[in-house]
Nucleic acid binder design. Structure first.
Lengths: 341, 341
DNA sequence: CTGAAAGCGCTAACAG
DNA sequence: CTGTTAGCGCTTTCAG
């Protein structure tokens, strides 16, 4: 029982008008008499007319769709970002096309093609961990499709980006541990080809330096930062002749692993070893003790990135901009010496 | 420096062929000589030709895009579902358009219009909590756009749906508690106009009945199931003259709230009160003790729903189908009397 | 203020 | 095997 969609030409015929007139009436053009405008709208309503965006898009060369490429959608950060981004896009009358790279470079290249084929008017992207070169983004640039990087960015002055001040996050977190009296502070770091992990590590070093404490290599451990990595890392630290008094981790997952190990060994948190993570994952307030972490203001990031993208889509040609979002240190039990229950 | 997209007609001109020939060569039509096919592909490659899907869609009346409407994308369940759904869709050459209703009925209605305007070839939807009537879905039916409900479904025999066997989930969970020796078992239930919560509650009752245990009204508490609701619920239960020996909650969030209260009161889990939740949220394996929960096989659900949708899109007119996914009870410390560390 | 006509890029008859 | 042609539904000159 397919019901044929009413089209502009249907309305035109019915009303003895030219399609162009109907089109203008519908799109709120100025040079249209109030009378015809009303007649058109009324019939459109009656026929439950829905504009065929595809046709309009083809004609105008713009699809009214914006693409978002993320490494994955499961997990706290990216889903929150999406929430913000989608809200902004929809309010501005744009649809959102979603692609996940699954942290895979090859898939990310395909995603870019998908976006181009879908004729999106702009693209928001956070690169996969395995992405080492950026040729596929050149295609986008060549076609003059507005492009905004967020969080995991391609660092280059010509690029539009929204990023978190990861350096500040690392700095504040480490400084907080120092203020709690810790001096030997370890760091769990992530892949060092990604800006975010480089910067978190940088903040850590800066804080230590300000306190005149040298970096000890044996206290800095890099990994993929899963829970298992955190477990292994903690075991390694505890095996040292002089274990650290605290750990600043660039991920909440690995700090949970560390926490597990400490509990198994009946070590107290934070009295024996204080812990602080990164991302303010939802579980950080559910563990025992609660985990101190750095909030990335995910939704704000999504809002900002999408707003920037929309501006680029709507007003042509702008000088590249970078927006930096400030993180917030959330102090919880795992790092607070004097506020244990 | 916008680079003009190469089109089929560009290729045709360059090669002195008709557009139709080029189109056929490109789409792997059979009646095309190997020679021309090669020439066409080669030039297409050179010009970095990308098909204009919009034009094809307009012509064919199919957009190659599938829509997904979910209540929200942040959180475990829906993001996992999306992961599965997107994987299937992309593999079949379809794009995915995402809309969130934010658990709001009005927004859900708008989402439906968005999908229709975007000319999606099919729609997958899980309804918002506040959705009480289903008129907006009639629009979709009227247009003969394939529609699949998942998880939170509109229960009607004419509808295509993928759902979890929530009844089984509730039944197994409760039976497990019974097998652990608990007899007075409380239930935290969700809004009773949603099929999922009705069924989880139903499974609970069935299990009790099989053990010849009557339902006690004071042990059954309905709420929105947030953590705070769980706290309040637990307080209420503990204030009873004879508190229960276990709680089966239809949500992991409220069971965490309950856990908090028990710990504050220095009650032991599971010795004093055993706990079991629902959804197998990622934090359930991070709490102490770990939380027993029911895994919803989210990704599988996304896969199944999208596969069903694709079948409907590709082969026309089928009898409505319902697919039921079996949940898995994940037994953890919070309910296991003899396996405490 | 309204109409006629062209065309966005592609596909699918229908001819050869 | 290839070419010619029409048209998907809409917007946008260009003419009145």
């Amino acid at each position: 029982m397919a019901q044929k969609r009413a089209s502009i030409s249907d309305i035109a015929k019915e009303l003895n008008l030219a399609v162009s007139t109907v089109s203008r009436a519908l799109s709120g053009h100025s040079r249209i008499s109030e009378a015809t405008r009303k007649r058109v709208w009324k019939l459109a309503e009656q026929l439950n007319y829905q504009p065929n965006h595809l046709a309009a898009a083809l004609r105008k060369g713009r699809s009214n769709t914006l693409g978002v490429i993320v490494p994955h959608i499961d997990g706290h950060f990216f889903s929150q970002v999406m929430k913000g981004a989608e809200a902004v896009a929809n309010r501005a009358g744009f649809n959102v096309l979603l692609c996940q790279s699954n942290e895979d470079y090859g898939q990310e290249q395909k995603n870019v093609d998908t976006m181009i084929n879908a004729q999106v008017d702009g693209i928001m992207v956070s690169v996969a961990r395995t992405t080492h070169d950026y040729k596929h983004f050149d295609k986008i640039k060549k076609r003059d499709i507005p492009l905004v990087f967020f969080d995991r960015i391609l660092d280059s002055p010509e690029v539009n980006a929204v990023e978190l001040d990861d350096f500040q996050g690392g700095y504040q977190s480490t400084k907080h541990l120092l203020e709690q009296g810790c001096r030997r502070i370890a760091h769990f770091g992530g892949p060092q080809h990604l800006n975010i992990y480089i910067n978190r590590f940088g903040g850590y070093r800066q804080a230590l330096q300000e306190y005149g404490i040298p970096i000890e290599e044996e206290l800095v451990l890099f990994s993929e930062m899963w829970e298992a990595d955190g477990r292994a890392g903690m075991e390694q630290l505890l095996a040292l002749p002089r274990p650290p008094e605290a750990v600043f981790s660039a991920s909440d997952f690995s700090i949970v692993g560390a926490m597990r190990v400490l509990k198994e060994r009946k070590l107290r948190i934070p009295e024996d070893i204080a812990l602080s993570g990164f991302s303010n994952e939802s579980f950080t307030s559910l563990t025992e003790p609660n985990l101190t972490s750095v909030d990335q203001c995910c939704e704000e990031m999504g809002l900002a990135a999408m707003r920037l993208l929309l501006e680029m889509v709507q007003e042509h040609e702008q000088a590249p901009r970078k927006i930096v979002i400030q993180p917030r240190l959330i102090k919880r039990e795992s790092s607070l010496w004097h506020q244990q229950p």
